[in-house]
Nucleic acid binder design. Structure first.
Lengths: 338, 338
DNA sequence: TTATTTTACGCAAACGTTTGAATGGATTAG
DNA sequence: CTAATCCATTCAAACGTTTGCGTAAAATAA
């Protein structure tokens, strides 16, 4: 009843061969004859041989583990990214060691340290919101642990990163609204400190310029992404002489807050005012007035690229070059429900 | 520059002691004098010694890995549960190997097989929606890999499981609405096949009986949890002679669909009809008319209990007894937003 | 003092796999 | 027919750690 797991040794004994022959046969080493190779593989099947990963890891001096540090798993964006990362890592024989910073820089430091101690072969990191010191990651270079930044990337020169080109999406969003006839288009942006905010604004301005419209700075307001902050931002916009007929929101959450408040203020959504936003998250499915369109950032594709390039870096030992993968965002129009 | 990681051997050489002494000293083995124990630990610190996990796993014949199979990571409920599982596993020196079934029974089978090949020491499983054959998990008993079912559990006798008592929450939901003066309370339930549906219904009936109200079966309708199914369910209810003034929805998603449709039908939410639901998921934050209250199922606590009891099972080799941990759900009233 | 126990450490094997080097036998070249 | 070459396989060490057993020296008991 107590099934001891079968090893390479048993196969060797069974076939009167040496363990080295078995090992090589299973790996299709050229110096093994086709005949014995076949025999070995058959016997392995028969005995239900499964290579002992722990032994392999140990002997190869590799852990086949890569660390992933994310702010919050319960944010759909990260959950979808992780999902893709997991799938590919699995297929390529790697295990993911997950850590959540909960947007806390201290926790992030601890995690980086633990991951190092755990001897991960590489790290995929999406920074905590308020991380300004990156030394805990940059230190890992000493240990030859490559770090690939993902989506929330630091403003550093020599780093690997995978991220999404938000600007083009932002431009698309403006173009979309212009095509609908809107001329007063506002932007409820995130905190000025965020790179993501800068990118949205740049794309916004680009679109206006391309269409020979002049940029009115008062139509762009920053907010802290909370419900309250969004309400205040919206009220600022509605108090303008040049009142916007359309709003581009930082993301779908902000859009939902703004819509709620607009309704409370007696506005008719999609008549008096309409919304476009970023993220294209599943919540749009559940809300009464989702944004007319949302900029998809393809978390799964980003995750896939992230793990793929990290594994390339690890397996090709290309520590000289820096990988910078940027995928394009894309405006997705929502079909009108009802 | 090329930092070779320091081993126990170096410490031994440095102090002119044997490796076994070092090993024991680091583990506070009683047969090592306090003096050398101190010396060893200091030297270990000085040299930045980190135990080679791969070597330990190998030598102990354990992987310190536990598998987690979930339907969908992008469902907040599972993301939160996994988050808790990860945190505790990390603290107790275990690594999580994650797999997503995407609610596909075949994928689930594959994952179970891969996890076994990977020699996980135990498995936490939340079943795919349509899994009816559990042999791929029950087979793991042969390999002494304990399986702990989580939230979505199979109707089997001898299993470990952690789940949530939905009935009490359901009863609370009805009581809450009764207290508000409602007498015609409907239930938009899930598919009859689901255990979760049965539990909601039982709790619903219990509450009515306790309050000496008679149970009207026409007030309970099943739906397939899609938006369309929800609309149909709502229309069925609204066509009744005894029209409900309050609806308990299977979960917050169903509630949101129902609210949308009710508004389209010209009903005033919280006046003509109001809603209560299950899951207490974050989407409630974003929608115009969230349910008045929602039954919290504490995914994080469930996850925590799951990993804790599984690790107990693993480390105490208690294969005889079956653990059945049930936590209580709890109705959470939402504060009305402005 | 001698016998016995206790204390503090070392020796060596073991875990499963990989891999450079060695080996013997068969084949080919000269 | 000998020498060189090649093929298929084996040998043995190595990876880092743990642990049962052995053994000196020190402490205690007689």
């Amino acid at each position: 009843m107590i099934k001891k797991s079968v090893t390479i040794k048993e196969i060797a004994k069974e076939l009167n061969l040496s363990v080295s022959t078995i090992s090589r046969a299973l790996h299709d080493h050229p110096s093994i004859s086709a005949a014995t190779r076949l025999k070995v593989k058959q016997m392995a099947q028969e005995l239900h041989y499964e290579p002992n990963q722990a032994a392999i890891h140990f002997q190869k001096g590799k852990t086949f583990t890569i660390g992933v540090i994310l702010p919050e798993l319960s944010e759909t964006f990260f959950a979808e990214a992780l999902s893709a990362i997991e799938d590919i890592a699995y297929k390529r024989g790697y295990t993911i060691l997950l850590g959540q910073s909960h947007d806390d820089e201290e926790k992030e430091k601890l995690l980086a340290e633990k991951m190092r101690a755990h001897r991960v072969e590489g790290l995929i990191v999406s920074l905590a919101k308020n991380t300004t010191d990156y030394s805990h990651f940059e230190q890992l270079k000493k240990y030859h642990i490559p770090v690939l930044y993902f989506d929330r990337i630091p403003p550093l020169k020599n780093i690997h990163h995978v991220s999404c080109n938000i600007e083009t999406g932002s431009t698309e969003a403006v173009n979309y609204l212009l095509k609908q006839g809107h001329r007063n288009i506002a932007l409820i942006n995130g905190p000025v400190s965020l790179l993501a905010s800068k990118q949205r604004k740049e794309g916004y301005i680009t679109a206006l310029q391309k269409n020979r419209l002049k940029f009115d700075p008062s139509l762009v307001v920053n907010c802290n992404l909370t419900e309250r902050g969004t309400r205040e931002a919206l009220e600022t916009l509605l108090a303008l002489k040049r009142k916007p007929s359309a709003v581009i929101a930082f993301n779908d959450y902000v859009s939902s807050y703004a819509v709620k408040h607009a309704i409370n203020l007696g506005l008719k959504i999609n008549e008096d005012i309409c919304f476009v936003s970023f993220a294209n998250s599943p919540i749009n499915q559940f809300i009464q007035y989702p944004p007319l369109a949302s900029v998809e950032q393809f978390p799964a594709i980003q995750g896939q690229k992230a793990i793929d390039t990290l594994l390339d870096i690890i397996n090709n030992h290309t520590e000289e070059a820096y990988y910078r993968v940027v995928i394009n965002s894309e405006l997705v129009e929502h079909q009108k429900t009802g």
